[in-house]
């Protein structure tokens, strides 16, 4: 296999570590349906695709072939059902194709339900997980739901009261005395 040049792995200003640009674009299209942008940003803006890329380059390299196979089958299904690549379909058609994947109706992909579940889980982890794993850019996911992040602690328990603290990451916490 030929090594790809570094520039060919550039995607949205970051270098991909496991996925191809084409795969990353495809995953972004899916991520945009799993947690779509509305008035508030969604999974694309949170950079869920970069969480997935790092996961596949790091601890889960064995899942890359599942992604490759699964995405290929989903694209084929999209072409057969709607006459175009998944990325080129409108929102409703994309949702319909994903729904077929979710209910295991894609013939070429036995156990497609499990692949959908993997995609959904990875996308949402990429939105709501700690930013150090590649996703949740600018803590978008935490701001969406009102989670103040890895606060050192809380001065009170905020009973029936909105929490007014800006979210913070572990790395962003000021070091406390006695921390080993």
């Amino acid at each position: 296999m030929k090594m790809k040049s570094q520039s060919s792995r550039q995607y949205r200003g970051e270098r991909l570590q496991a996925l191809t640009v084409r795969q990353a674009r495809f995953i972004d299209a899916i991520a945009g349906r799993i947690l779509p942008a509305t008035d508030a940003p969604g999974a694309v803006e949170a950079g869920a695709v970069f969480y997935i890329d790092r996961a596949l380059a790091g601890p889960y390299p064995h899942l890359l072939s599942r992604y490759t196979r699964g995405l290929r089958a989903l694209d084929k299904h999209a072409k057969r059902q709607f006459g175009a690549s998944f990325e080129k379909l409108g929102d409703e058609q994309q949702d319909s194709a994903l729904g077929d994947l979710e209910s295991g109706k894609i013939a070429e992909l036995p156990n497609g339900e499990a692949f959908f579940e993997l995609l959904r889980t990875h996308v949402l982890e990429g939105v709501f997980g700690e930013p150090s794993y590649g996703g949740n850019k600018d803590m978008i996911g935490w701001k969406l739901v009102g989670f103040p992040g890895q606060q050192w602690g809380y001065p009170e328990t905020y009973i029936n009261k909105a929490v007014d603290l800006p979210p913070i990451t572990w790395e962003g916490l000021p070091k406390k005395p006695g921390q080993s």
Binding site: P36, T38, R120, T121, L124, F128, G129, L144
Partner: peptide
């Protein structure tokens, strides 16, 4: 639980992804 612990807790009548899911999780996480 942080959001990752709660993201799979979805009422039976709400689809577990898409706009409906997002609106559900944004409203009810807290």
């Amino acid at each position: 639980g942080a959001p990752v612990s709660r993201m799979d807790i979805v009422p039976p009548d709400v689809r577990s992804w898409g706009k409906e899911y997002k609106e559900y999780f944004m409203r009810y996480y807290t």
